[in-house]
């Protein structure tokens, strides 16, 4: 219950503290994760980026064919000899042509493949925000104009304590009837 009370207090200490804690832990992880990956992991990573030349739409990592298996062995050997991932990829691209690389290069015409989805997403966000604004504006105009058959509320609309209680009781009964619940449950908020 005391934790409850603390969390209810209009304070930012706890959320800010938690976010900071996560930040610190993640930073430490990111720094310690910089340790080298295993040869298996690196081989798989490179193999995923190369298209299997004898299959339809499968990568060298995925294809069960013998050719892909040989290519994986080559990747593994080259990495073991100390070449970088980029050098191995460049080797395959030289031997088989640039088509063989799975990941489209991020330049020239092919960069469109990366840019378009981002652009569309941004356009979607802009459209939603604009629409929401427009709808809100219309809503304000409509309520100010006393139109649409909605009665205009004038004077004091604050409920007295009794009125509020009566309204709550009524609401609770209606919901209970709706839900098929027995009435007369404990009072709670």
């Amino acid at each position: 219950m005391r934790l409850h009370a603390v969390l209810r207090r209009p304070t930012f200490i706890i959320p800010v503290g938690i976010v900071l804690l996560i930040g610190v832990v993640w930073l430490v992880t990111a720094i310690s994760a910089a340790q080298p990956k295993s040869l298996d992991e690196r081989t798989l990573e490179v193999a995923r980026q190369i298209q299997c030349p004898v299959c339809n739409g499968e990568s060298v990592a995925d294809s069960p064919s013998l050719k892909a298996s040989e290519m994986r062995a080559v990747i593994r050997q080259q990495l073991a000899e100390g070449r970088s991932e980029q050098q191995v990829l460049a080797y395959f691209s030289d031997v088989y042509g640039s088509d063989i690389l799975e990941s489209p290069p991020q330049q020239g015409f092919t960069s469109l493949i990366w840019i378009m989805p981002v652009l569309m997403l941004l356009a979607g966000i802009v459209a939603i925000v604009t629409l929401a604004r427009e709808w809100q504006r219309q809503a304000r105009v409509a309520s100010a104009g006393n139109g649409d058959g909605v009665a205009e509320i004038t004077g004091d609309v604050t409920l007295s304590a009794e009125e509020r209680q009566a309204l709550t009781a009524l609401l609770r009964r209606e919901v209970a009837a709706d839900e098929g619940l027995p009435l007369g449950g404990r009072e709670d908020s």
């Binding site: 995923r48 980026q49 298209q51 739409g57 990568s59 088509d99 799975e102 990941s103 489209p104 015409f109 092919t110 469109l112 493949i113 990366w114």
Partner: peptide, 19 residues
């Protein structure tokens, strides 16, 4: 995109899982 690429640039390409 591969169709687009071959029509516009006359260049075949594959879009793999990485994308």
């Amino acid at each position: 995109f591969p169709i687009l690429s071959s029509v516009v640039r006359g260049q075949t390409m594959t879009v793999g899982t990485a994308f």
